[in-house]
Simulated scan of single mutants.
Amino acid sequence: MNMAQNKQLVSNLLNYRPYKLLKFCYFLVLSMWMLSCGDNTNKQNTTSATEVEETENPSDKETKTILFFGDSITAGYGLDTTDNAYPAFVQQKIDSLKLDYTVVNSGVSGETSAGGRSRIDWILNQDIEIFILELGANDGLRGVPLSETQNNLQAIIDAVKQKSPDTEIILAGMELPPNMGQAYTSQFRNMYAELAKKNEVVFIPFILKDVGGIAELNQNDGIHPTIEGHKIIANTVWEYLKPLL
């Protein structure tokens, strides 16, 4: 069979109707497969781009911790919720400025300086950017020797510094009612100033400034602030905290 005959035979086969149908199906399947590969490639490219974007722009940012370590004043004793205590109002101020800080309220009602000292190591299991120390009032009301209170507060400060020397510390001072005796109340007040000076920490002379002794800003016990009192405390703390943020 010569070349011309071969070409004629192939032409006849291609024009044969069943073969035309088979050829059509072949090209149809081939086209669908190619389109499918194209879609998978696009999906892979899209996924990769998304993963890169999420890596470069994480939605969940880690925030720095501001920890309030105190007694019933910090815990918000007598209030319906800790959301009404002054640390929560400080958080509101932080959020209004869109700063990346999270406030942690570690106040315990009835806490003494000895109690704080006993739990400080557990508290320091977390990273803390700013540590606000508000303890000692219950010591004073119980007539605990000032040397004991001072040693406990110093131990707490030492523990914070040892865990992280970069942690900023704010010491909140407290004052006692005059019925505790002039000498004791005066020495109690000076104790905080001495601690602040010795350790070179930020010092709030009296955390209950403009609140302590004002009936309408305190609950019926005359000691623990109302919600309005806590808002004023938050403003007092904010004066010393804001420059550190």
Rank of each mutant, 00 (worst) to 15 (best):
I204C: 02
N138P: 00
Q126L: 12
L241W: 06
M180E: 10
E228Y: 03
Q219A: 04
V160H: 06
F203Y: 15
E194R: 13
P165N: 13
N199H: 15
I120K: 01
N179Y: 13
Q150T: 14
I170H: 00
G140Y: 01
A172H: 04
E129M: 06
W122H: 12
P225Q: 03
E175H: 12
L195I: 10
Q150I: 06
T236G: 04
I132L: 13
G181A: 11
S147Y: 09
E200S: 15
L241Q: 06
D139I: 03
G173T: 09
E168V: 13
P178T: 13
T185W: 10
K198D: 13
I128G: 00
A159P: 02
I227Y: 02
A137D: 03
P165M: 10
G181V: 11
P205R: 07
N220F: 12
G222L: 11
T167N: 08
G181E: 09
H230A: 07
N190C: 10
D210Y: 06
D166V: 07
N151D: 14
L208F: 05
W122M: 12
V202N: 09
G136A: 02
V211S: 00
Y192W: 13
W122K: 14
K209P: 05
I130F: 01
E129N: 14
H230N: 15
K163M: 11
R189T: 15
D210Q: 11
D158N: 15
S147L: 10
L146V: 07
S164P: 08
E216A: 04
D121N: 14
I156T: 03
H230T: 05
A172M: 09
E148M: 11
T236Y: 08
L153K: 02
N218S: 07
E134T: 04
L241D: 04
N220H: 12
N199Q: 13
D121A: 13
P145W: 10
S147A: 12
N125D: 15
T226M: 04
F188I: 09
K161F: 10
F131K: 03
V211E: 00
V160E: 05
D221L: 09
I204A: 01
Y240A: 12
D221S: 04
V237Y: 02
V202E: 12
I207A: 04
H224R: 07
Q150M: 10
G212P: 01
L146T: 05
P178V: 14
P225V: 08
L241I: 13
N152T: 07
D158I: 11
A196W: 07
E200R: 15
M191E: 05
D166Q: 14
F206W: 10
T236M: 09
A183C: 09
Q182W: 12
M180T: 14
N199W: 11
S147V: 11
E148T: 14
N190A: 15
A172R: 02
Q126G: 12
L146N: 02
L217F: 07
P177S: 10
T226G: 02
L153V: 09
A159N: 07
